[in-house]
Amino acid sequence: MYAWLFHLLPGPTWFRWILTLVGLAAVVFVLMEYVYPWVAEFGFFSDATMDVD
């Protein structure tokens, strides 16, 4: 699948690699800044407080 997507990218190979790296960086950034903080709200991994209601 990824080989196929890589093939669909325009331009020469070196340009495709740059596109790939930029795309990966964007995905990682969105995960770090938005997706993971949202996932963490469900509190599977870190909860320092007592269960007070």
Partner: peptide
């Protein structure tokens, strides 16, 4: 999942 650990 691995990246989540890096994030945390």
């Amino acid at each position: 999942v691995l990246l989540f650990v890096v994030w945390e």
